[in-house]
Amino acid sequence: MNLKQIIEKLNLKVIAAEDSVDVEVKGGYVSDLLSDVMANARNKSIWITLQMHQNIIAVASLKEIAGIIIVNGRKPDEETIKKAEEQKIPLLLSDLPAFEIAGMLYSMGISG
């Protein structure tokens, strides 16, 4: 599924790398531990997290993550947004908790 469709269906707010959202999403991963994402997330996955520190961008870039959904209405720092722009990692915001977002993605056919 295309990330653009996901953004629309889940009503996500795009706050960085808006021109990099036309990509295929191959899976999903939920985690707030960076080492866990490094070890276990698959390429082109969408990453659901409540982490919003700039460190998430290097991890996403190394893992070639299709986009990061930051949940629970949390707002990332300026540095995180700047880095996401630089590395072309779409940063997406939602007021919903991780469980809801993962459930919706799963029902849309995205799996781990």
Binding site: D32, L34, S35, D36, M38, A39, Q51, N55
Partner: peptide, 13 residues
């Protein structure tokens, strides 16, 4: 830990 580190998985991985 609040930044997402400290899982104790680095060296083992």
């Amino acid at each position: 830990r609040n930044m997402g580190f400290g899982a104790g998985m680095g060296l083992p991985n």
